[in-house]
Design a protein around this nucleic acid. Structure first.
Lengths: 121, 121
DNA sequence: CCGGATCCGATACGATACTG
DNA sequence: CAGTATCGTATCGGATCCGG
């Protein structure tokens, strides 16, 4: 494979589209941001860190990403129970993309960041 | 603003989350990929380029992104009518992020690219 | 050619209550 | 602490018909 000439982006083959669907969902990216840099977090830590998420959505999206091979779930059989989550290697490889997204999101105009999206008309 | 030490990612403030919601939706990223590099595309071009999308979804997501300031819509009052779409400056600034996402998506395991997502259990 | 309007089913989401 | 179960709603997404 020759080196990429700066930016390529154009095609977006079927396979790529399918892969991108892993990131779909109200909370996926937010969770991934929390787990960044190889951080290991407990369920309750994530719950506290992500304001507004419900237990149901948190566990649901975590389990999906686990199946998709993005995060790893570790159960410690203790009392009280302890379950930790962290990114897989492939999940970690999302790092550059997430960082770029973060930069872009930070550059969003104030109206957007305040929560008024396509609600103009 | 001092330079970032490689990767930062961690916090994901409220505003960032709101901005990221712009990219939510089944077709948003796919459309953005098509419009990449400042390309100007007609409605029917997009429709043909994105296999599987319906007119409704195409127009809906385009209009939303227009309101969100990511794409621009240009109507040429001709017969037959011609409407063209392209990225705004802010939309263009998504370029690095999309490219990084593309690289990541391409590195997805075959099972993912074939369309079997969290459908394991 | 572009795209609005409407109908309809699927599923994503959210709040709440309950369990080992 | 870390989930499950249930229910109601909102939004998504596709098909189809209609109009400038």
């Amino acid at each position: 494979m020759g080196k990429r000439p700066e930016y390529t982006a154009p095609l977006a083959a079927e396979g790529v589209q399918n892969a991108l669907r892993i990131l779909e969902g109200r909370w996926k990216l937010v969770i991934l941001f929390q787990l960044f840099g190889g951080k290991v977090m407990r369920f309750s830590e994530l719950e506290r860190a992500i304001s507004g998420i419900s237990q149901k959505m948190l566990i649901q999206q975590l389990r999906q990403m686990e199946k998709d091979g993005v995060v790893t779930r570790i159960v410690h059989h203790e009392v009280p129970p302890r379950v930790e989550y962290h990114l897989t290697d492939w999940g970690q490889s999302l790092c550059p993309a997430l960082d770029a997204l973060l930069l872009w999101a930070e550059s969003a105009p104030a109206e957007i960041r305040q929560g008024l999206l396509g609600e103009t008309g």
